[in-house]
Write a protein that binds this DNA or RNA. Structure first.
Length: 427
RNA sequence: GGAGAGAUGGCUGAGUGGUCGAAAGCGCUCCCCUGCUAAGGGAGUAAGGGUUAAAAGCCCUUCGAGGGUUCGAAUCCCUCUCUCUCCGCCA
């Protein structure tokens, strides 16, 4: 949520910023609504104040045994007026809040203006795409030849956009997850967390998926109000909701491995084959709670933490800054890390690292005590994949494939693989 | 799933219709006293919002959440959520 004070005081500037996203913010309509809120609130509070003083007066008079009838007569129609005023105020406030919850975050100046992922800017490249002396297979062919990726069974059980993994490949994904968790906890100062995979709607409002992106979420049933998490960002970031952190307790860094569930509404026809875009996938997520002046530095760090994973796996990648047309709803600045996939001959997103500044914090009332003033103030939140495990598996398969279709196990994963160095089809 | 109890400020905990945003204690902050340590005395100490250029001041809201009764609700009524205890079931 954008600071309502800023919306009031600088509506035109906000509109200009959001226009870079292609988002139309009607500043005049907002300000008109805000005017109504103001007059209604002043009026309501005046009536409330009147009610309070009268009630006190009656209480006193009664205690002294005076006749309260005339006092009661005097406040006779106050109640009705107050009720009407309160109802009108609440209606306007609900309208305002709905509007505010629907506004995306303000963009950082460093975000390039653009329409689509075509306009993202590359900031650095690491490693060099390998040129094998044979034609690289994609992960689908590799996995099916090994008999360890089974899309047919998955679709029989659950339909499209699911996979069944078996044997060493299933273990390889688990190894990747373990390796990532261990690296982030022991080398980057994150605390491992285990969190619920089912959450209630306020949690999703807090991180920004609701109310606007309801159709992207899986909901359990209409009766029970649970949603399946689309990312660990949701439960982990909400650990800060309604919390006032002590001045010296930030930054807080959490890492969690969870499955992620996405309806992928609106992405029909995209990446329908293979494991790139699934309804269910595994991800290791990094979340940070930081002081408000520390978030841009933290974003660089956090992105670096994700990069370390790819470096240790020796997977070539590049980092891009998302442009104004591609960046997420709640982010003020996002780096995507794209890993090289030989089977596709291109870079594909494997991590997305975002600074939300106070956007989520305001929604979920995540605050800290300012060390100077002692007063609560909103913190900044960040998150990033560190990294997506399903896509990391694909990347390892395609980058470590050999001509005979076998897959070498990256050195850093071997301790997690019980000595397996090559994954090959049984002879 | 059955039976019962509960939800109050950073914590413990009092408060069953009026001057209660809330006693007391603990904790924390500041001051005073005391030549160590310990102890003692005093003051302060919730959050959000409105008004304001901003602050002060003033006002409003909040005692799990939402609704209701009333001139007036932490206190009475209804619904919901959560927590705890016992029984049953269960990885």
């Amino acid at each position: 949520m954008i600071d309502p004070k800023l919306l009031r005081q600088a509506a035109a500037e906000v509109a200009a910023n959001l226009a870079r996203r292609g988002f139309a913010f009607d500043a005049d309509a907002y300000l008109a609504l805000e005017e109504r809120r103001k007059s209604l609130q002043v009026e309501t509070e005046q009536l409330q104040s009147e009610r309070n003083t009268n009630a006190k007066r009656i209480g006193k008079a009664k205690a002294q045994g005076e006749d309260i009838e005339p006092l009661l007569a005097a406040v006779k129609d106050l109640g009705e007026k107050l009720e009407a005023s309160e109802a009108a105020l609440q209606a306007v406030q609900t309208e305002l809040r709905d509007l505010e919850l629907g506004l995306p975050n303000l963009l950082d100046d460093a975000v390039p203006t653009g329409d689509s992922e075509e306009d993202n800017t590359e900031v650095r490249v690491w490693g060099e795409p390998a040129k094998p002396g044979f034609e690289a297979r994609d992960h689908i062919e590799l996995g099916e030849r090994l008999g360890q990726l089974d899309f047919e069974s998955a679709s029989k059980i659950s339909g499209a956009r699911f996979v069944v993994m078996k044997g060493a490949l299933a273990r390889l994904q688990r190894a990747l997850i373990q390796f990532m968790l261990d690296t982030h906890t022991s080398e980057h100062g994150y605390t491992e967390t285990y969190v619920p995979y089912l959450v209630k709607s306020p949690a999703l409002v807090g991180t920004g998926q609701l109310p606007k992106f309801e159709e992207d979420q899986f909901k359990t049933t209409d009766e029970s109000p649970f949603y399946l998490i689309p990312t660990a960002e949701v439960p982990v970031t909400n650990l800060a909701s309604d919390v006032i952190f002590e001045a010296d307790s930030l930054p807080v860094r959490y890492v969690a491995h969870t499955p992620c569930f996405r309806s992928e509404a609106g992405s029909h026809g995209q990446d329908t084959r293979g494991m790139i875009r699934q309804h269910q996938f595994e991800k290791v997520e990094l979340v940070q709670f930081v002081a408000p002046d520390a978030s841009m530095d933290a974003l660089e760090e956090l992105t670096g933490h994700a990069e370390v994973i790819l470096q240790k796996l020796n997977l070539p990648y590049r980092v891009v800054v998302l442009c104004s047309g591609d960046i997420g709803f709640g982010s003020t600045k996002t780096y995507d890390i794209e890993v090289w996939l030989p089977g596709q001959g291109r870079y594909r997103e494997i991590s997305s690292c975002s600074n939300y500044n106070d956007f989520q914090a305001r929604r979920m009332k995540a605050r800290r005590r300012n060390p100077e003033t002692g007063k609560p103030e909103l913190i900044h939140t960040l998150n990033g994949s560190g990294v997506a495990a399903g896509r990391a598996l694909i990347a390892v398969m395609e980058n470590y494939q050999q001509e005979d279709g076998s897959i070498r196990v990256p050195e850093v994963l071997q301790p997690y693989m019980g000595g397996i160095e090559v994954i090959a089809a049984p002879a």
